[in-house]
């Protein structure tokens, strides 16, 4: 039974067929996106068909990965002949083409916007990355077989002394795992080189890209408040993850004293602050607009809950970028 299974898995035609399905599997994602998700095919709905098409490419990738593992263990057992190596050579050439194509598609996503590939073709970046990993693994495995064929030969079972045949088996398994692990390291290195253009581009970005759109408020505060000023900022949390993060904004505002709006929940505390500056955040977006100013009742809400009465409020600076206020309690 085991021999039969081994014979079947070693058939070059099986590996080539699997590999062709593997290469063409992104087309299933495209089909799913255009004819199943966006447009109900021929007017009838099959329950689970969309999920099947979503997971089938992953299933195929896992299948070719397993077939590769089996072929490599056969190589260790000296059962790979010229025809098998030629098959791997053909697949390696196809893999190079695939890796270049996958990289171009990934770059297309980064050049446009997140989810661009899925939005237009129904293919995800993680799907491409997993397929690239499997393709790169085949390529490295072939190169390994080629290099070792030239430099080494595999010791046959008869060359081992009979009392250590079991040791030979574990040594073979150990070698297989070590080669698989090292291939993983090579793939991670390859990933670095493939991503170099993107990394160069990303690292050239300024603070407006790294901190986000709220960086403009930090520039306003830095330019229009004195260095010994006290500055109130929004509470830290999901709404104001950057502008509410005191250690982060201190880098741009030091040596000013920073006060989290979350602490301004009563007038007694506000009076100890006495005189402070703050920017108006997102005046046109209701959910992240901060702080809530009521000029009629002369109150401000800094912590999203408590109304604090102020003595005087003046606009220190105003432009298209935003406003900076000075408040006296």
């Amino acid at each position: 039974m085991r021999i039969k299974f081994s014979e079947i898995t070693l058939k070059p035609i099986l590996l080539i067929s699997l590999w062709l399905i593997f290469f063409l599997s992104p087309l299933l994602s495209v089909f799913r996106f255009y004819f199943v998700v966006n447009n109900n095919l021929l007017g009838f709905h099959i329950k689970g068909f969309s999920s099947l098409l979503l997971y089938f490419p992953v299933f195929i990738s896992v299948l070719v990965f397993l077939s590769l593992v089996l072929w490599f263990s056969e190589f260790i057992d000296k059962k790979l002949f010229t025809v098998h190596k030629k098959t791997l050579a053909i697949l390696s050439l196809l893999n190079i083409v695939f890796l270049v194509a996958a990289d171009s598609l990934r770059n297309l996503e980064y050049r446009n916007y997140p989810n661009f590939l899925y939005g237009n073709f129904g293919i995800t970046v993680s799907q491409l990355e997993f397929m690239s990993f499997v393709a790169a693994l085949e390529l490295i495995m072939f190169l390994f077989i080629l290099a070792y064929d030239l430099a080494f030969k595999i010791r046959g079972a008869t060359k081992w002394r009979s009392n250590i045949v079991s040791t030979a088996k574990t040594e073979k398994a150990s070698l297989f795992l070590a080669v698989a692990g090292f291939s993983g390291l090579v793939i991670l290195s390859g990933y670095t080189f493939l991503n170099l253009p993107l990394m160069i581009k990303q690292e050239k970005r300024g603070y407006d890209a790294k901190v986000g759109i709220v960086y403009k408020y930090l520039v306003l505060l830095s330019d229009h408040t004195p260095k010994n000023a006290k500055v109130i900022h929004p509470p830290q949390g999901e709404k104001w993850s950057a502008i509410g993060n005191q250690p982060l904004i201190r880098y741009f505002l030091y040596p000013r004293v920073l006060i989290s709006g979350a602490l301004l929940n009563n007038l007694e505390f506000a009076k100890t602050i006495a005189d402070a500056y703050f920017p108006e955040i997102d005046p046109t977006i209701d959910s992240t607009h901060w702080p809530k100013i009521d000029t009629i009742n002369r109150t401000i809400i800094f912590d999203e809950k408590s109304e604090i009465r102020y003595k005087k409020l003046e606009t220190i600076f105003e432009s298209e970028e935003g406003r900076v206020f000075r408040v006296l309690f």
């Binding site: 509470p235 830290q236 005191q246 250690p247 004293v257 920073l258 006060i259 989290s260 979350a262 602490l263």
Partner: peptide, 8 residues
């Protein structure tokens, strides 16, 4: 420096 910071 973190005198007026409730979280850090």
């Amino acid at each position: 420096l973190s005198k007026y910071d409730n979280l850090n």
